[in-house]
Computed example of a mutant assay.
Amino acid sequence: MSGPNTSYDPVQVTPLNAEEVDRMVDAAIRAFAEATTVAELKEARLAHTGERSPLALANREIGALPPAARKEAGARVGKARGRVNQALKQRDEEVTAAELERRLATETVDVTLPAELTPRGAIHPITGMLDLVSDIFVAMGWEIAEGPELEAEWLNFDALNFPPDHPARYLADTLFVEPLASHLLMRTHTSPVQARTLIERELPVYIACPGKVYRADEFDATHLPVFHQVEGLVVDKGISMAHLKGTLDHLASELFGGVTTRFRPHFFPFTEPSAEVDLQCFICRGEDADCRTCGGNGWIEWGGCGVVNPRVLIACGIDPDVYSGFAFGMGIDRGVMFRNGATDLRDMVEGDVRFSRSLTGIAR
């Protein structure tokens, strides 16, 4: 059996030859210099410093040498790999900087050119209508009053002269909050704000109460379980039905352009006398028998109104022999439909900005 090879000369192993090692280094440096992008430099790095690169393969040959020859061969290959890595690092910095410069040059923005702006949002038509109605009343010298949406049953019904067996108190119409013994509910109208105002403020009172209300209604094209109202209340000395008519005529004219209102006898627990208020058709003014807006009769049902019931004044601690007042209320959502020709209330709660943009002329 022959012994180990102790006279193995590393110079005779081609990959470990000094000239061959220098050639590998030169080839690597040349490949790095020819790379002009980060991607090209990555390919050159894998080719000349990866596991299958010439220097990596030469390094593997060192293990086959006798112990006496390994030191010299290892030093030669180690220095060569160090030169290659140094050259790679330097070239990587140069290529990265050059590529950044090219990117900055190509992405330069001329700020003097017209820009295409991101499409802006739009005021929701209901919000716009609420703001417009509020502006009209503020311009008349009224105040805007607000109250909680979670309301006490007494303020929502009892203070407004609703008897205990009134149908509006049934669970089929009103959203009560458990436990029922708490007598809390989601307000069915903004009238509790009027009751709160009469209890808390000094007279006279001239307020408008816009806000969100809740009913146990179906969700369809003409009904929503959550919708919006605006109610008005005046309590002062010498207030009559004539003041109510003048106020509603002014509101209708401002909202719909020069139209008037009419009253039809009705009943509400909190007003006496009471009336349904109709809006003159702002499309045909009653002159088109085929008008789709009013059905050809020239009038559109708008809301309810009346003189404040003395029982409501007494419940709020006001002497009805000294003070009188009027109140009214109408739906904001229906007003948007009238004013803009919207046909489906569900469109107002879908959150599609295109719907809001399509309804122009809402906000001032």
Rank of each mutant, 00 (worst) to 15 (best):
A39M: 05
L198E: 01
V177G: 09
I362M: 07
L150R: 08
T49G: 13
L88Q: 05
C294N: 05
L117E: 12
N156V: 10
A97C: 05
N156L: 14
R357Q: 13
G325L: 01
G257S: 13
A28K: 00
Q12Y: 08
G121K: 07
V38N: 06
I300R: 06
L155A: 12
L104M: 11
T190C: 10
H166K: 07
Q12G: 07
F219L: 15
D220T: 03
T247A: 10
E153M: 13
A152H: 09
V234N: 04
R102H: 11
Y170E: 12
Y323W: 13
E40V: 02
A159H: 09
G246F: 03
G286P: 04
R285Y: 06
P204E: 05
E149P: 14
L224Q: 05
F32M: 09
R215S: 04
G238S: 14
I136E: 08
V21L: 04
A56K: 12
V349C: 02
F219T: 12
R262Y: 09
R81M: 09
L233N: 07
V25A: 00
G325Y: 06
Q90V: 14
V38E: 15
E93Y: 02
T271S: 12
R76Y: 01
T222K: 01
R354L: 04
E101T: 11
D319N: 14
V111K: 08
L41Q: 08
R292K: 13
C316I: 03
F227K: 02
W302M: 15
V133L: 11
D321S: 08
L160W: 05
L65E: 00
G335V: 06
F282N: 07
T6I: 15
P15C: 12
F326D: 03
V84A: 02
R201M: 07
G78D: 11
A327Q: 04
R187N: 13
E276A: 07
D220W: 10
V230G: 00
H124S: 04
E116A: 06
P66K: 10
F326K: 08
R102M: 15
T360P: 03
L359V: 15
M129Q: 15
V95Q: 03
A80V: 00
D288M: 03
R187W: 02
T6H: 09
P66H: 13
E34H: 10
D236R: 04
A275V: 13
P265S: 02
V234F: 04
F355C: 06
L113V: 13
F263G: 01
R354C: 09
T127D: 05
D22Y: 08
D352T: 00
L175D: 06
P204V: 12
T188L: 01
E287Q: 14
A69Y: 10
P66R: 14
V353M: 14
S53L: 03
M24N: 11
Y170C: 06
A75Y: 09
V349Q: 04
G78N: 13
R201W: 05
A221E: 15
S274Y: 05
A80K: 00
G351P: 00
R339Y: 10
F338K: 04
A39C: 05
